[in-house]
Design a protein around this nucleic acid. Structure first.
Lengths: 173, 173
DNA sequence: ATCAGTTGTTTTATGAGCAAAACATCGGTT
DNA sequence: AACCGATGTTTTGCTCATAAAACAACTGAT
């Protein structure tokens, strides 16, 4: 694999931590109507000191703006980033839970892990796909019905690999 | 979102860096028949010093073993991890490229970013799904045909959101 | 046999994220 | 006015992953 591929991982402008600081502000604005450093720290269960430093950097990057009296809110850019991340999280979670039939917690965890890493292209195409897949379209319904049926009695399947479970036996959880 | 969800990100036993050190060894064994610290460093385009430190840690974790004369190879555990990661990478890349019709480079980049983050459950279910989706099954073929048709002329779509492109306009690349 | 190149390691430094602790500030009670 | 609690910041230290540079050891060519 070309190194320019795997190194793009580091070149993400939005880290996992930043993604959650931003979405925390967004959710706090909805829940409480405001968001201060302490509220973000509480929401993310990190210390106020850590949140203070991260948010200072986000203010410097222009993603978060501070009110006259220490009240935070998302800038236009910050807001667009949060929208993009939440859209990807939602569509991935929906796909994992409602299509692949993973339990809700697993779907949430996995969606949370990858939401900020998917490209805009991928997010858009996945949205198209899931939307059609879960629509009323009879072909989609029939396809899903057959897939779920096979999922239930998966002894019929002829796998391209000898032992699928062994391939994915890394994590115990 | 509960913090125990987003914090699971950090608790990954396999980091992106570790995943690629391990897969680099695997690929070098196939390409060259051997893998030394310098070979790994060259493959990943990092300095020998960095590779040396990371690989020392992987030896301590028992994922990499060192030959009598500085030749590296994967342990049984290391091998299982690489198999698991490559299986996930392959199925994600296949899905993004062959189903969602993303170009190969984008599919590779995105697959590379998420391969080590997906749970075993998710990898397994996704493999089931993609396998059925790309099989000869007439329902699957018809579903894909309809989906790709809609993809081409996507002005017909009635989106659940006003402007999908705007939701995913974060990245420029 | 010497000299150059490759290899592996160690040391020093950086940046991102975090915790812990010290510190300052502000607001409301008493 | 004195105190208490909540808040925000700074400092120090930690881990991970990297670079850069210095160093030692081996390899091969001349």
């Amino acid at each position: 694999m070309a190194s320019d591929v795997w190194k793009e991982y580091e070149s993400n402008e939005i880290s996992h931590s930043v993604a959650h600081h931003l979405t925390a502000i967004h959710e706090l604005m909805g829940d409480l109507g405001y968001a201060r450093v302490s509220d973000v720290a509480r929401a993310l269960e990190i210390t106020r000191g850590s949140a203070s430093l991260t948010l200072k950097a986000l203010k410097a990057r222009g993603l978060v703006v501070e009110d006259h009296n220490k009240f935070l809110k998302l800038s236009e850019d910050g807001r667009r980033i949060v929208d993009s991340i939440l859209a990807k999280r939602t569509v991935v979670r929906k796909f994992l839970n409602e299509v692949l039939k993973l339990d809700e917690h697993q779907a949430e965890v996995d969606a949370c892990k990858v939401e900020h890493l998917l490209s805009a292209q991928t997010g858009r195409q996945l949205l198209h796909f899931v939307h059609f897949l879960l629509s009323d379209d009879p072909t989609a319904r029939q396809f899903l019905a057959e897939f779920w049926c096979k999922l239930d009695q998966n002894e019929e399947w002829q796998w391209p690999v000898q032992d699928v479970d062994q391939l994915f036996n890394l994590e115990s959880r």
